[in-house]
């Protein structure tokens, strides 16, 4: 599960571009900065934490329960 801190997001969209599973997209919400923070598309995330690390603004965290990945999902883990 991805948790987005919408107030921290500046809208660079790097998380969306870097996600190896295409699990993020722009949401409908408009935050105070006037940008659309990302939102998770169901069931695609493999918990690789790349979005969390690549977000320059500390606006995404991957929630702990995602640690329990299936073997199949783990094999698809990706890093740059």
């Amino acid at each position: 599960m991805i948790e987005v801190n919408e107030e921290y997001c500046k809208g660079c969209n790097l998380c969306i571009l870097f996600c190896p599973r295409d699990a993020l997209e722009e949401s409908e919400t408009l935050n105070k900065k006037g940008v659309h923070p990302p939102i998770e598309i169901d069931d695609r995330c493999n918990g690789c934490r790349l979005c969390e690390l690549i977000c320059p603004d500390f606006a995404i965290v991957v929630e702990e329960e995602d640690k329990k990945l299936t073997k199949k999902q783990q094999s698809k883990k990706c890093c740059v």
């Binding site: 320059p56 500390f58 991957v62 702990e64």
Partner: peptide, 27 residues
């Protein structure tokens, strides 16, 4: 985890940080 890092080390009263959109300094 990112959550642990943020809670333990970041001064949340200073956040969000001042760096521009897409600047690598946050990274």
């Amino acid at each position: 985890s990112g959550k642990k890092i943020q809670e333990k080390y970041l001064r949340d009263e200073m956040m969000p940080h001042i760096f521009c959109n897409g600047c690598g300094l946050g990274n």
